[in-house]
């Protein structure tokens, strides 16, 4: 696992792909059917298609993202995760992925439930609001934190539902899903490797990636 992660970050440097996307791609079984919700211009779709041989499709809200991705020949539809996930039949994908998007959905719980209905697995990555620097920022400055990855001001941001790793774990329990794997990335984009309690991950992880599946 550790060796694998090293290879992944090496690969990230070479390919220029985001580390969290490589972590996600590594969780996906080769050749599987994948729906990427909030696919942007299709970076992850391309990664999954070329390195994992997946039938990978995307939904993206922004017109610019969709048009750029479709122009590269990727199957992306312009749509809204908060609405359009309802159209997909049960079990139509092996994995439904929500990368760095859950905090921008209006109904995170509903979206997560839909993901676990449409796919047999769900993969969710998100910025961790419990990261120590966020906490420090709020404690010292008394203002809503803004970081390099999350540069928006509180009143002008697409991110309306921030959560911490512990909040997310609680939501997973609430929707009755199982955590198959979890990984946290520290402030340098490296995986937090040691198996530590959630509370520690919640402090050290700037981002988190969870692989979930339906219970039973």
């Amino acid at each position: 696992m550790a060796a694998r992660d090293l290879t992944m970050s090496e690969a990230a440097r070479v390919a220029g792909a985001r580390v969290d996307l490589l972590l996600i791609a590594e969780m996906v079984r080769p050749g599987s059917r994948v729906l990427d919700v909030g696919s942007g211009d299709g970076e992850l779709l391309e990664l999954l298609a070329t390195t994992r041989g997946c039938d990978a499709r995307g939904i993206e809200l922004s017109r610019e993202g969709v048009n750029a991705g479709v122009a590269r020949g990727l199957p992306i539809i312009q749509g809204d995760a908060d609405i359009d996930l309802a159209d997909y039949p049960d079990n139509s994908f092996d994995y439904v992925i929500l990368s760095q998007t859950i905090q921008a959905t209006r109904r995170p719980k509903w979206v997560l439930e839909q993901m676990l209905r449409v796919g047999s697995h769900a993969i969710v990555s998100f910025p961790n609001f419990g990261f120590w620097r966020m906490r420090l920022d709020l404690l010292v400055n008394g203002r809503m934190p803004s970081t390099e990855n999350l540069p928006y001001s509180w009143h002008d941001t697409p991110n309306i539902h921030f959560c911490t790793i512990r909040d997310f774990v609680a939501l997973v329990e609430e929707v009755g899903a199982r955590i198959d794997r979890a990984a946290a990335l520290n402030g340098y984009g490296h995986p937090v490797r040691v198996n530590l309690p959630w509370a520690v991950w919640n402090l050290l992880g700037e981002q988190a990636v969870f692989l979930l599946s339906r219970k039973g």
């Binding site: 039938d55 499709r57 017109r63 969709v66 048009n67 479709v70 990727l74 199957p75 992306i76 539809i77 312009q78 749509g79 359009d84 159209d87 997909y88 039949p89 139509s92």
Partner: peptide, 11 residues
């Protein structure tokens, strides 16, 4: 989508 077809859609 409901029929599982591969589809792109751009406005």
């Amino acid at each position: 989508n409901a029929s599982g077809a591969q589809v792109s859609f751009a406005e």
